[in-house]
Amino acid sequence: MDFWLDLLFGNAVGLSSMIVIICTFGLISFFGGYFVYKVMTSKPQ
């Protein structure tokens, strides 16, 4: 736990790295969920 706290709040590089990782995971989750939603609600042609 001390390692993560030092990484997050110890320097700006660690904090920005964690922000990038969290934003990337959020975007992947959003686009994955949107894709599943569009597939489930599409009408058969």
Rank of each mutant, 00 (worst) to 15 (best):
M1I: 01
M1A: 07
M1L: 09
M1P: 02
D2W: 11
F3R: 01
F3L: 03
F3N: 01
W4G: 00
D6K: 15
D6I: 03
D6R: 15
L7C: 03
L7G: 00
L7N: 03
L8A: 14
L8G: 01
L8N: 02
G10Y: 10
N11H: 12
N11E: 05
N11D: 09
A12K: 10
V13Q: 05
V13T: 14
G14K: 03
G14N: 02
G14I: 04
G14E: 01
L15S: 06
L15N: 04
L15G: 02
S16K: 08
S16D: 06
S16V: 14
S16R: 06
S16T: 15
S17T: 14
S17Q: 10
I19D: 02
V20D: 02
V20A: 14
I21K: 13
I21S: 09
I22M: 06
C23S: 11
C23N: 09
T24I: 07
T24S: 15
F25N: 05
G26I: 08
G26Y: 05
G26N: 13
L27F: 09
L27I: 03
I28K: 11
S29K: 11
S29R: 08
F30W: 11
F31S: 05
G32K: 08
G32C: 04
G32T: 11
G32R: 13
G33Y: 10
G33T: 07
G33N: 10
G33S: 09
Y34G: 01
Y34Q: 11
F35R: 15
F35C: 07
F35G: 04
F35W: 10
V36D: 07
V36W: 07
V36G: 05
V36Q: 08
Y37Q: 07
Y37K: 14
K38I: 01
V39K: 12
V39T: 00
V39H: 07
M40R: 08
M40P: 00
M40K: 09
M40Y: 04
T41V: 09
S42C: 06
K43H: 07
K43R: 14
K43V: 12
P44R: 15
P44C: 14
P44D: 15
Q45S: 03
Q45H: 03
Q45I: 15
